[in-house]
Amino acid sequence: MGEANNNKAMQDMEGQYITFELGGETYGIAILKLIEIIGFRELTKIPNVPSFIKGILNLRGAAIPVIDLREHFHLQNVNYDSFTVIMILKISARTIGLIVDNVKDVVAFTQDQLRPAPRFNSQIKTDFIKAMGEKDDKFVILLDIDRLLSDEELNVVDGV
């Protein structure tokens, strides 16, 4: 990828991100994907699905699946507490809830504050990382939420 291309890609990613914490790391999701943030509430379990799909909640009459990224990223499990929140996101046609430890800030990243996603060896899946944002000496992992929660991912059935 040429430098110009890279710049173009970074330019496209400029904008406001909602940042949140997950297992001590800070992540960011494009703010336009966010519908609302609600406190954690008890979920209805879905049988025979991967464990990162935590269940379904009722959001004003609609049944919404809730996902815990911590498990998806193979981070250590934590108990949900009063600080745990669910971010309700609009991902293509779907509305999906995302459990996070806590929501921090809305941060605006400019082109020069963005770096391409680091590449590891092929064992580590990183294609859902859009870019790395750096601001005030802090790193934010910007997620490509559409890719992270693609049809493919959601259609994974446990044990298959």
Binding site: T44, P47, G55, I56, N58, A62, A63, I96
Partner: peptide, 27 residues
Amino acid sequence: IKSIDKNFRKIEGTSGATILGNGKVSL
């Protein structure tokens, strides 16, 4: 009856969900 596959996908063994009196979802 509320659709689940609208936001998720079909869950084998269920035909949808409904909201119970206590606000929780029931398959």
